[in-house]
């Protein structure tokens, strides 16, 4: 192998890894998992006890909505609301599989009934209204239910005059509901306008990954925008951009650090510090 070949191969491997889902590899047994970032073999229990962060390299794995709620809210204080709102199939949509089938598969896989949990809970004793998204449920995509539950909880924040928190994880708008999904961007953003007019604090936490219609609506409208460490955030997907501009993008493109460099977010927070950061921000805005 020539030096040139070696570099070529290395580059290919890097690209392959980049296109891989940045997830914990849990196919190697019940007790052990492998870190996507540093390739270390890790004890599953050890990772879970460390807030789903790699104890070796500090890489933040994706977590689901319920785990997030447990990490952010004071124990036993979070009360879910609007869980009665469930998915319909208004367009009778079917691609390689029927939308209704995809929904029931997602429900079975995640034990959730949609890609967001809305509710009110306490963070260090302060009441907060929250919408917490779950990427495992159809890529956290926003259709009518996500839009409605996000809007309803914002209206609840208005009613109770309490701060609003959105934790996003989404590939974007849900294609299976087409134009109705697009309109959820308008609906949720209009609800943010009402929070603004009422002078209520709205904090958003962008987590891995936040893209498309969610980035282009309520996710980036926070009075304060926090990105979680290792999150990738953007409007268009990396591959779409590469195809459009016909050049490859920097390795750190659309990472939290990249967005920070370009002034798009207020701060990056590690998972360990997220709760205390949010708590401090809420206390600083208390009248």
């Amino acid at each position: 192998m020539t030096v040139k070949d070696w570099f070529e191969q290395r580059k290919k491997m890097q690209i392959a890894r980049r296109d891989q889902d940045p997830q914990i590899d849990d196919t190697i047994g019940k007790l052990w998992v492998k870190c996507y970032n540093c390739n270390s073999q890790l004890l599953r229990k050890e990772v879970e006890e460390n807030l789903d962060v790699c104890p070796k390299c500090n890489y933040h794995f994706r977590i689901n909505a319920r785990t997030r709620i447990n990490q952010l809210f004071d124990e036993g204080t979070f009360e879910e609301m609007f869980s009665n709102i469930t998915t319909a199939d208004p367009l009778k949509f079917s691609d390689t599989e029927a939308y209704t089938k995809r929904i029931s598969q997602a429900k079975a896989k995640t034990n959730m009934n949609e890609a967001v949990i809305s509710g009110v809970g306490e963070i260090d004793g302060n009441q907060v209204a929250a919408a917490i998204m779950d990427f495992e449920f159809m890529g956290g995509s926003m259709g009518s239910v996500v839009g409605e539950k996000v809007t309803l909880i914002m209206e609840e924040a208005l009613k109770r005059k309490i701060p609003m928190l959105a934790v996003t994880a989404s590939g974007g708008a849900r294609m299976q509901e087409s134009i109705l999904s697009l309109m959820q961007m308008a609906k949720t953003s209009c609800a943010v306008a009402r929070l603004n007019e009422a002078g209520l604090l709205y904090i958003t936490v962008l987590t891995e990954p936040t893209f498309g219609g969610v980035t282009a609506s309520f996710a980036t409208l926070g009075d304060i925008i926090i990105a979680e460490q290792d999150a990738r955030i953007g409007f268009a997907g990396r591959r779409v951009i590469e195809q459009t501009i016909r050049q490859s993008l920097p390795a750190d493109f659309q990472t939290a650090n990249y967005l920070m460099k370009y002034g798009q977010i207020d701060m990056i927070s590690s998972r360990a510090e997220l709760k205390s950061t949010i708590s401090k921000i809420i206390n600083l805005h208390k009248k």
């Binding site: 980035t215 282009a216 980036t220 409007f235 951009i241 459009t244 501009i245 493109f253």
Partner: peptide
Amino acid sequence: YPGMKAEETAQGT
């Protein structure tokens, strides 16, 4: 537009 500069200057926002 899905471009590099568009992302850097916050298309979504």
